[in-house]
C-alpha cells in the first residue's frame, strides 16, 4: 500500500467516525416527542363536598407556606436552583434569564401548600438546551422533588402532561383553585414561529404532592 493511499484511508476512517458521532449527537438533540395538543378544559374546579361538620374539604397532605429553593427531577436528570418570577409590565409571566435556572411564580401558592404552585423553565435559551428541554418525556408517576426554605422537601408525582396553544392557554386549569397541593411545570413546545421568535405552544406537566421529608 502506498503512503498516500494509507493517509487517504486514515482520513476516510476519521471522517466516517466523526460522521457517525455527529449522527449520534443529532439523535440525542432530536426534539422530544410531545403530547398532542389538549382540548380546552371543561368548567373549573368546584368543591364537591356540601356537608357540614368537621370534615375537611381539601384532599391529601398539605404543608405550610414556604418558598422553594431547588428542584430535582430524577427522570430528566434535572437538579437546579429555583428563583422567584413575577409578572412583566404586559401582565405575562416573567421567565428565567438563563437556560438552567427554574422560576417559581410568586403570585401563586408555594410548593407543598394548598393550591397550584407554578414552576417555569426554558426548553432552550440563547443557544443552550434548557432545564425543561425534555419535560415532554415525563410520564405519570415520575417524581419531582422541591426543596423549600423551611428545610422540607416536597415530593410530587406527575399526574399528566398537556400541550396548549399559547393563545388558548387554560388559566383556570393551570392557576385556578384546586383542593390539594399541586405543582405545574411549564415550558415551550409545538411549532416555532420564526416571525415572533416564540414557540406556538406551552407544555404543562401537572403533579400533586405525595410525600414531605425533612
Amino acid at each position: 500500500m502506498t503512503r498516500s493511499r494509507k493517509v487517504a484511508l486514515v482520513a476516510a476512517a476519521v471522517l466516517a467516525i466523526a460522521g457517525a458521532i455527529a449522527i449520534v449527537v443529532g439523535r440525542h438533540d432530536e426534539p422530544v416527542a410531545e403530547p398532542p395538543r389538549t382540548a380546552p378544559p371543561g368548567p373549573p374546579f368546584s368543591a364537591p363536598a356540601t356537608r357540614s361538620g368537621t370534615d375537611v374539604l381539601t384532599t391529601g397532605r398539605l404543608l405550610p407556606t414556604s418558598e422553594p429553593t431547588r428542584v430535582r427531577i430524577p427522570a430528566l436528570h434535572v437538579d437546579e436552583a429555583v428563583i422567584g418570577l413575577g409578572q412583566n409590565p404586559d401582565g405575562s409571566m416573567q421567565v428565567p434569564t438563563d437556560a438552567h435556572t427554574v422560576g417559581w411564580y410568586t403570585k401563586a401558592p408555594t410548593p407543598g401548600s394548598l393550591g397550584p404552585a407554578v414552576l417555569a423553565g426554558h426548553v432552550n435559551y440563547r443557544g443552550a438546551d434548557g432545564t425543561f428541554a425534555r419535560l415532554a418525556m415525563l410520564r405519570p408517576g415520575d417524581r419531582i422533588m422541591v426543596a423549600r426554605q423551611d428545610g422540607v422537601t416536597a415530593t410530587f408525582a406527575v399526574n399528566r402532561l398537556d400541550r396548549y396553544p399559547k393563545d388558548q392557554f387554560p388559566a383556570d386549569a393551570v392557576y385556578g383553585a384546586i383542593d390539594h397541593a399541586g405543582l405545574r411545570l411549564i415550558t415551550c413546545g409545538g411549532d416555532f414561529d420564526d416571525r415572533s421568535g416564540h414557540y406556538l405552544d406551552n407544555i404543562v406537566a401537572y403533579a400533586s404532592l405525595v410525600t414531605a421529608d425533612r
Binding site: S92, P109, R126, F169, I178, H198
Partner: peptide
C-alpha cells in the same frame, strides 16, 4: 371551610420559555 387555593394573580397568556435556539 377552606376548599381550595389558586394563584392570587393570573398572568396573561402563555409563558415564553424558549427562543428556539437549539
Amino acid at each position: 371551610m377552606v376548599s381550595g387555593a389558586a394563584a392570587g394573580s393570573v398572568p396573561v397568556g402563555g409563558v415564553a420559555t424558549g427562543d428556539g435556539s437549539t
